[in-house]
Design a binder for these strands. Sequence first.
DNA 1: TATGAATGAGCTTTCATTCAT
DNA 2: TATGAATGAAAGCTCATTCAT
Lengths: 211, 211, 211, 211
Amino acid sequence: MTAQPSIQRKTRKELLSEWRHAEVLDAAGRIFAARGYSATNVEEIAKEAGMAKGTIYLYFKSKEEIFAEVLGRDLQALTDRTIEAMSAAEMFSGRVKIFLNLRLEYLRSKQNFLRIYLDEFASRSARPKPVADAMDKMFRRDLEFMQWCVVRAMARDEIRQVPAEAAAYAIFDLARGFVQRHLNGWTPLTLEEDVAFVHSMILNGLQKDKS
Amino acid sequence: MTAQPSIQRKTRKELLSEWRHAEVLDAAGRIFAARGYSATNVEEIAKEAGMAKGTIYLYFKSKEEIFAEVLGRDLQALTDRTIEAMSAAEMFSGRVKIFLNLRLEYLRSKQNFLRIYLDEFASRSARPKPVADAMDKMFRRDLEFMQWCVVRAMARDEIRQVPAEAAAYAIFDLARGFVQRHLNGWTPLTLEEDVAFVHSMILNGLQKDKS
Amino acid sequence: MTAQPSIQRKTRKELLSEWRHAEVLDAAGRIFAARGYSATNVEEIAKEAGMAKGTIYLYFKSKEEIFAEVLGRDLQALTDRTIEAMSAAEMFSGRVKIFLNLRLEYLRSKQNFLRIYLDEFASRSARPKPVADAMDKMFRRDLEFMQWCVVRAMARDEIRQVPAEAAAYAIFDLARGFVQRHLNGWTPLTLEEDVAFVHSMILNGLQKDKS
Amino acid sequence: MTAQPSIQRKTRKELLSEWRHAEVLDAAGRIFAARGYSATNVEEIAKEAGMAKGTIYLYFKSKEEIFAEVLGRDLQALTDRTIEAMSAAEMFSGRVKIFLNLRLEYLRSKQNFLRIYLDEFASRSARPKPVADAMDKMFRRDLEFMQWCVVRAMARDEIRQVPAEAAAYAIFDLARGFVQRHLNGWTPLTLEEDVAFVHSMILNGLQKDKS
DNA sequence: TATGAATGAGCTTTCATTCAT
DNA sequence: TATGAATGAAAGCTCATTCAT
């Protein structure tokens, strides 16, 4: 079999290109997390990524695009893992526990990401459209899955009848608050105690009337 | 009784000054709400307030100060009203209902304010210290009152034993999500339906085990 | 004799007006001396003069005009006194001594004025034309008198033959340096010692050859 | 011998950078000389240097820094040349002549520089500290050398006993006045005539009593 | 492909001057 | 006459983006 240099080289180039792309995203993630969107400047990202400012623009059209991808990439991963892991549990109670534990694990491993996620998700309205859209899309997928879980739990009579979408939101809201509390050191509870409390809030909040 | 022109004149001037001050805050509130902090420029605020850029600086030392006051003013009012109104109810259930209804009323009358509050509260970490501090202080007051309500409800055996601070946070988280949902048009529920659901989530979530 | 109210009132008004005019100049003199021309702002002058900013503009067309008059007024006084006092001496040597002693006295009583005079005289070229012109005019009068003294001294055979204008300049240069030295604390000499030295420099410098 | 491209390239870049740096200084020198410090704005310097405003800030941190360097650069050169050239003469009389001729030569070749030097040196007190300090340092060096020359001349019995520092100042004062006179066209004397006169003023002024 | 110097629009803030009262 | 609130041009400086090398 003879060499296929053109393909190989192209592939190599593509790999290199992807690698650079990812390096920028990593660096940008760190800087955005530390400073927020507007206070971060491209020069810093370039320095953090170990390349020149101009090089950044070979891989991204604008600062905004970098930001959108930074959020998108991590959200994608979180969303994928969340859906996959929750699917493994049968009962709603278990699924909520898994959901919370995943958030908790993320809290431990990706404080940076969560910080920008929380900051910028809330600031969505002030952000350029594309960024807001990218964030919404990811968030929606997660939320829809949770909503589906709620619907299923109602059908299986595990929880009382509630508006499914609002319930899914409520779960996300409680989880978001939980993460924020610990990120900012706003609570004396240990992570485990707090997870247990939030879990009980959700399940009690949605439980069937014990009449 | 003869006129007291000096007092009158002084009062009139002071009133005018306060009026201008307030006009800037109103205008700034609208613009900040629409664009966020960094994307807002002083020129626009001036235009919105119907005055020249320089005039703004007669009433405020800096853009940052305007922002701090915009947030502070509305937060103060909301906090005051919340604490006062909740105190009027005896039972925890009633207090939560009042809390949610106040948030709902605010949602209706002050969409602008809520938007910045939500945006910038979440972006706290990226804000200049003084702004973040002002926001925290107000929020703390509200939260502490809610926490005290939770403690009292536990003592009166209205709800189960829970970590009071975490419970107070959970209530705020659910309320925040509720407001955000409606602000962004993210739910098909009417405001009343949603308030009822969130109320049931909180009370069920904290209710005594019906075992 | 009946009253002549119109004239009287007009006179009174004129007096008041002149009084205000002078008050502004006094205040401006202090501030300009402390901060220099560009670093002084009209607000400060108004505050120092105990009146409102707008009032200033009833008496002066511009900040620049104030400055020109401040310099002009003091220069006028200094020039008048200098010429008058020097005329009282018969011999050139005595005149130079008087000249230096007047500068010295001014140094003691009008440090402020001298500071602006020195600063701004040297910066003449950077100043608006009218200011530079006013300064020049005053300075010229002084200089011309000194030049005339030199011519007379040569005619009376008190000093050697020198270019009179250049000699007058030289005397002013030495006096200026002397004042600057002491204003800035740049010399260990006492005022008296320094005056004596400068006097000897001038007289020796211009003396007849002792061949 | 093969090429050393890395070194060459680096050198080239450095050269280019220094060249730009110098271009800004040259342009700034011209504008500052024409308008003075505060009346000069960065935009104009940029235009004069044929580059954009932002480019200036790649080479200098602030307008003030540009100014300090403009003055510093020329003062350095003048000071160095002055000290070196004066050292070549043996007698005090010769040194003073060299000193004056150097000033004269500078007057011819660097009118711009002298203008700012004179302007801003006198306005020292109104300047930002670092600028004033830089100017003082240079001036001091020159002055100290002159003072040392005076001391030496006294020791060698070339001149009479005088306070050395005051004498050095006097020489500078006379030279300053001489330059100013010609810069502003205030004298009918030719440069040569005036130099001769100032020289005689200094030497006569300091000469031993011919008693 | 990679660079980083260059750009210039845009920012916040100051202040001489005007003008309604 | 006296006021000081209002004005808006202009300043110094930053930084996302472009482009010659």
